[in-house]
Design a binder for these strands. Structure first.
Length: 563
RNA sequence: GUCCCAGUAGCUCAGCAGGAUAGAGCAACAGCCUUCUAAGCUGUGGGUCACAGGUUCGAAUCCUGUCUGGGACACCA
């Protein structure tokens, strides 16, 4: 919609500047004024001033005068700018009409029709608590998947569980020394974590423990039945705990093939590397040199012959390409691993896979406490489950205080409590580090999930009370409704920007923006007041509700119709 | 030491394919509910956009350097 207006504006200007500037260039220059009284679109004349060697102010005045103004409400020159005001009535009818027409598909496209995007997300480590870092990966990945689907792609959500590696040797060693079946069964993650922490603590004084852990991992790799059994048990218990969280978050996976799944797929990678003469020995280890790419070498095999993270990820990348034929493969993993992913791409490139450039590391900032990284090894973790629990309790208290007669309080408390935490995680650009603050996460006023949900619930309430029904009559756009219409018109554009930049925060900001504009409208106009504006106001309310709900959905946040 | 990311209001952050007086939210203060959900709305105060150069008619936005913070840098993932 906005694009259409922009095109129209550009076409008109092009006619005026015939021979000096093509439409593409004009489109590039057209901008949205920051201030309301500067209109809806603006063209700065500085560049034209250089072409024509006249003052920008003069050009703006002449352009404003000679332009075809029929399709706009007003065209005026202000200083060096040509400002246009769109036809509010027509635009409102077009925008809201389109939303009525498409409903939740408003903003959808077919850009990715027939293509697959795999998304490596969440990927918690077995036997360790689900941390806030994993929450980030999970909700960012989920939102990117939803955005991809909105644009017609098939999204494959992959939970690459951290279910293999030397830490399991350590864990088994710790369990054998100090663990008990009863305790682990009672509270698996907590107990396993305690064992892991104790192992690290004690191995500072008794370094021989490290060796013991290494031996257990070797046994695990060699298929020792005791080791394998313990490993399976740890994995199973952990997965059950994780599933509770996924259920709360409303996230599902198409694949939970973790690291262990690739154990038998790595030899092939090593063979290819070897056949292509890419492997070299360095201090006993097998590496791929990446000097020409300006990177340190990528470790493929340890000096004891064991494989490494990179080997596994290479195997996983190849496997995913062969299985899913992805057009793009995203890895939602913390930014401290950017070197690893750069190395991964570089090695794939050397292996001759042309799709190396379709691999994309979607990095995100860390969750910090007192400005420092949280460390599992030192037991310094914030448990997501507890955060969610507190948030849901707070939501429950708020409902009790504000709307005690609400039906289905528990499910609303869940939606709002979880929504607050998810939204808080997504509202800022993913690359920012987040200082852990329970207070901020539980906030429900201002730029928060509950604020947006509240706005949606209010809109729903109006629609219920006003018995809103589509009649298709022509709408009247009041002055106060115009800002809402403009934001509504931007939704498709915002979706594209969010998807192109792998940036869900754009959607979060958008939805806040829309809620703010709608709330202003709500404060200024009695929507249910009988009279000639009622249908138009309710229509606007309806359109806003559709877009708020869909925006929240794209973030993985529920929209209860009442709260 | 090398590489990556960041430094905008007291706090959390937008804005950054250059453009008109730098915007929100929180916190503070002052208002608005016998009428559509006050998880809301309105107003006030608060800024040398880290610093220094450069490119440009024009820089928070682009380039270079400096400082500060964080992260990564071989047998963890």
């Amino acid at each position: 919609m906005m694009m259409k207006n922009k095109n129209m504006f550009a076409a008109n200007l092009q006619a005026v500047f015939e021979g000096y500037m093509d439409k593409e260039e004009i489109l590039q220059l057209i901008e949205v004024p920051k201030q309301r009284d500067h209109g809806d679109l603006a063209f700065p004349c500085f560049t034209m001033a250089q072409h024509l060697r006249k003052s920008p102010g003069l050009i703006a005045r002449q352009a404003a005068e000679s332009m075809n103004k029929e399709s706009f409400e007003k065209v005026e020159a202000v200083g060096p700018y040509v400002n246009v005001f769109l036809n509010k009535q027509q635009t409102a009818n077009e925008v809201i009409g389109e939303i009525f027409d498409k409903q939740q598909d408003y903003g959808a496209s077919v850009a990715g029709q027939g293509e697959v995007i795999t998304i490596d997300m969440s990927s918690p480590n077995i036997a360790k608590p689900f941390s806030l870092g994993h929450l980030r990966s999970t909700v960012i990945g989920n939102s990117l998947a939803l955005l991809a689907e909105k644009r017609g792609y098939t999204a494959v959500r992959i939970n690459h569980l951290g279910d293999w590696g030397t830490q399991f040797g350590k864990l088994i060693a710790a369990y054998k020394r100090w663990g008990s079946k009863e305790q682990v069964s009672r509270d698996p993650i907590k107990e396993l974590l305690a064992l892991y922490v104790r192992f690290h603590h004690e191995s500072e004084a008794f370094p021989e423990l490290i060796e013991e852990g290494r031996e257990w991992f070797k046994k695990l790799e060699d298929g020792d039945s005791e080791a394998l059994q313990l490993w399976k048990w740890f994995r199973e218990e952990s997965l059950q705990e994780f599933n509770k969280i996924y259920e709360l978050l409303g996230v599902y996976f198409d694949s939970t093939e973790g690291e262990a799944f690739f154990n038998d797929k790595m030899e092939r990678i090593v063979d290819v590397l070897s056949a292509k003469n890419l492997l070299s020995k360095s201090a006993g280890a097998q590496v791929v040199q990446l000097i020409e790419a300006g990177m340190p070498p990528c470790l493929i095999k340890k000096s004891d012959g064991a494989t490494l993270y990179a080997t596994r990820d290479l195997a996983a990348a190849v496997y995913r390409k062969e299985r899913y034929h992805f057009a793009k493969s995203l890895y939602v993993v913390g930014n401290e691993q950017s070197l690893h992913f750069n190395q991964l791409s570089a090695v794939l490139k050397k292996m001759g896979y042309s799709w190396w450039k379709d691999i994309r590391h979607i990095s995100f900032g860390m969750v910090l406490k007192d400005g420092k990284k949280l460390s599992t090894r030192k037991g310094k973790v914030v448990l997501l489950e507890e955060v969610l629990k507190e948030s849901m309790e707070l939501a429950s208290k708020n409902i009790e205080a504000k709307n005690p007669d609400l039906a289905d309080k528990q499910s609303v408390a869940k939606s709002v409590g979880v929504g607050a935490v998810v939204f808080h995680d997504l509202k800022n650009h993913r690359n920012n580090d987040i200082e852990f603050s329970l207070k901020d996460m539980l906030r429900v006023e201002g730029e928060t999930g509950p604020y947006v949900q509240y706005t949606y619930a209010r809109a729903c309430s109006l629609l219920r009370k006003g018995n809103f029904q589509l009649t298709g009559e022509t709408l009247v756009c009041e002055e106060e409704a115009w800002p809402v219409v403009k934001v509504l018109a931007e939704f498709p554009n915002t979706i594209n920007k969010a998807a192109e930049n792998d940036d869900p925060s754009k959607i979060a900001k958008y939805v806040i923006d829309l809620a703010q504009e709608f709330n202003k409208f709500y404060a200024n106009k009695r929507i249910l007041e009988e009279g000639k504006h009622k249908y138009s106001r309710l229509s606007l309310t309806y359109a806003a509700s559709v877009v708020l709900k869909e925006g929240l959905r794209l973030l993985g946040v529920d929209s209860p119709p009442e709260m």
